[in-house]
């Protein structure tokens, strides 16, 4: 019998994508106005374009020089839209400033993917399980948005991402970068995710925490916790974090905080894990990550490494 020909086109034989390569923001906005979709690292978009045939028109953002800048001024870090994850993950300077973001950036995909994928791309994809997102939430990330008229606005990341795969970006607007608040004195942050395999996998649950101590290095002055992959967007477990403030990180306090984090998350049951399992993960990860963030302070930021 003759083998039947698969009706699915081989990716290689799809017609080429119409690729624009603008050299400045003006040209980029003109391409977008003409219907092109902005292309950063392309680790999602090129797969969609070559397998589903959509989108057919892309405008590469790598030609915008100012979007390649990582600017550190004092406690603030601004990361341009064209900066790949590997540049962030390999920076020793950033490691001590935005630990939770770095820990997320260094587990995305693989070496190859991190060389291509961008932090801003991860934000705009708005996946509930985006590995860099919980870290960005606890580092109070602001998304810098520009429009063709040149006006800019800054949106809190929790308001920018509104649903799975959905953001509050208006038509004609582009994300130029993200600005995050780095760690100050007596402050630490950490991120951890749970996956079935160690690479190229999506998190079943992930947690980021940020803790600032009073000058005694024992009493918590401020805390924030963000939960990934257990709700329609990354969730701010503010109530759970508030339980830690004014207290020391004794096992009972930690347990109470982790229980509340597990209660306030909204996991779903799917083919990868049950909702109950995800809740258990949140409980375990929260305890672990609050301690890891605290340890950064007590160990005197021992994780600073050469870039």
């Amino acid at each position: 019998m003759m083998p039947t020909v698969s009706p699915v086109l081989r990716p290689s034989y799809l017609p080429p994508v119409e690729l624009h390569r603008p050299n400045d923001l003006g040209e980029l906005f003109a391409c977008v106005a003409a219907g092109a979709c902005p292309l950063a690292g392309g680790t999602d978009l090129v797969v969609w374009a070559s397998q589903r045939g959509e989108p057919r028109q892309l405008a590469w953002t790598g030609g915008i020089d100012e979007w390649h800048i990582v600017d550190i001024s004092g406690q603030q870090v601004r990361i341009g839209a064209a900066v790949p994850l590997s540049r962030i993950a390999r920076s020793g300077e950033l490691r001590s400033l935005i630990s939770a973001v770095i820990e997320g950036a260094s587990v995305v995909g693989s070496v190859q993917l991190r060389n291509q994928a961008t932090l801003v791309g991860n934000v705009c994809t708005a996946s509930p399980g985006g590995d860099t997102l919980p870290g960005l939430y606890v580092h109070d990330a602001m998304v810098d948005v520009v429009n063709a008229a040149g006006s800019r606005r800054s949106i809190k990341i929790s308001e920018f991402i509104c649903a799975p795969g959905k953001t509050n970006l208006a038509p004609g607007e582009l994300v130029a970068g993200v600005t995050v608040r780095g760690l100050g004195p007596l402050e630490g942050s950490a991120f951890c995710r749970f996956t079935q395999r160690n690479a190229l996998d999506l998190a079943l649950a992930s947690v980021a925490a940020r803790v600032r101590f009073e000058s005694d290095e024992q009493t918590v002055a401020q805390a924030s916790i963000a939960l990934g992959a257990v709700g329609p967007t990354v969730l701010d477990a503010g109530q759970a974090a508030a339980l830690l403030v004014g207290r020391t990180l004794e096992p009972t306090q930690l347990r109470e905080c982790a229980n509340l984090a597990a209660e306030c998350c909204q996991p779903i049951t799917d083919h990868r894990a049950s909702a109950d399992y995800r809740r258990q993960l949140v409980r375990a990860l929260t305890e672990e990550i609050v301690l890891a963030a605290a340890k950064q302070v007590t160990a005197g930021c021992a994780s600073v490494e050469a870039s």
């Binding site: 690729l19 292309l39 070559s50 070496v111 190859q112 060389n115 291509q116």
Partner: peptide
Amino acid sequence: CGEGDCGACTVLIDGEPMCSCLLLTGV
């Protein structure tokens, strides 16, 4: 795989490994 998972298409771009199935030539 054609999706950036398997790494069989890995090439070096300015000395850094990337998946050539996820790169458009013009880039």
